[in-house]
Design a protein around this nucleic acid. Sequence first.
DNA 1: ATAGAAATAGGGTATTTACCCTATACTGGC
DNA 2: GCCAGTATAGGGTAAATACCCTATTTCTAT
Lengths: 205, 205
Amino acid sequence: MKIIVADDHHIVRQGLLALIQAARVGSIIADVDSGKQAWQHILRHEPDIAILDITMGEVSGLNVCQRIKARGLKTRVILLTMHSDIKVIDNALEAGAHGYLPKSDAFHSLIKAIHIVHTGGQYISDSHQSELQSYRNNKADFELTIREKEIIHHISLGQTNKEIGEALFISAKTVDAHRTRVMKKLGFKKTAQLVRFAIEEGISL
Amino acid sequence: MKIIVADDHHIVRQGLLALIQAARVGSIIADVDSGKQAWQHILRHEPDIAILDITMGEVSGLNVCQRIKARGLKTRVILLTMHSDIKVIDNALEAGAHGYLPKSDAFHSLIKAIHIVHTGGQYISDSHQSELQSYRNNKADFELTIREKEIIHHISLGQTNKEIGEALFISAKTVDAHRTRVMKKLGFKKTAQLVRFAIEEGISL
DNA sequence: ATAGAAATAGGGTATTTACCCTATACTGGC
DNA sequence: GCCAGTATAGGGTAAATACCCTATTTCTAT
């Protein structure tokens, strides 16, 4: 089994290599620190497994994964991430990943994941699997309307319902209605969470 | 030299441990996966060096660092992070860290950093040092105390004054006092502005 | 045409915030 | 010793929020 490992942190790569070598599960044909290099190696050598970090400089593991899918290469992808955000997992699997592993689980589950993915299966931890299920069922609820995004943009700028109403020529009570609906959709209870969401999702700049 | 390592990713810990053992630079008395455990070990054994990840669940490496400083323990801290934002570095050093290392540099520079920090020095990479210099020169005098930063971190997570008080073992009224003082210092009038500030300044991760 | 969603906006209430005041205790600097 | 700054925490009030409810209009898709 030919394996390639890509992660921009040398220390993480070292850990992964040691783990794979100790388990004698295959041979590592390359370990690289960027998505760009990973893609070049994969194109040239078409390894069986590519273990890719999602967040790597310019070209992400997700992006490499999409390219592999688009080219129809036989290389199967296990994506690694730091924070296991269900939205990211959803994106990863839709990008064509065969396995998804938070780095915190890598030590315990990587070898298992490699075996499953190599034999044609899909690897996600059970807890993430069920979380993903409910996320996908409710996914539509996380979609905000243009008006709702507009409202939370104003909120994240620090405006009150009254001020937002005046700015948009609607009643403060309507602003409150939008606000409450967004809170319910996203499962938030405080303005602070909304502001964080708006900034992180790029709704408010 | 007694060393403790804290990182919530087993694979990273494994890499760090292998590195430190290969360099025969000291003995690792503990490797843990949370800030809470790190703090317990440090309190009990007062190691020479603590290598702490900044982002770890509830109790961050930054927080542990503050506690070490507050208690006047001899343990010297090297903080590790994923992304090297200059604002985060500034916070880290103000929180009492003796060394700061992005994980991408860990493999090459950790041993050097341990030596420097252990002999009383401060370790930051040269490029970060100069960047930090110009950042501090241009930094507006929005000076917040450690406690104030801690409070607004909790606020930006969406906690109420009451919840923050319970978490930090102080009265909700005291939390309100800190909050009001910060608002006055920064000229803010709404929680939303505070959250944005905390996220953009790297106070809340 | 009709169901469904989105946007509008009112009533009502409990909780939370923002900000005013005072006051004590501890710390470091001069 | 004394002052400035920080952390603590109480009393108080007005504003804002979070969330419950109903109801109208408008637009879109089947």
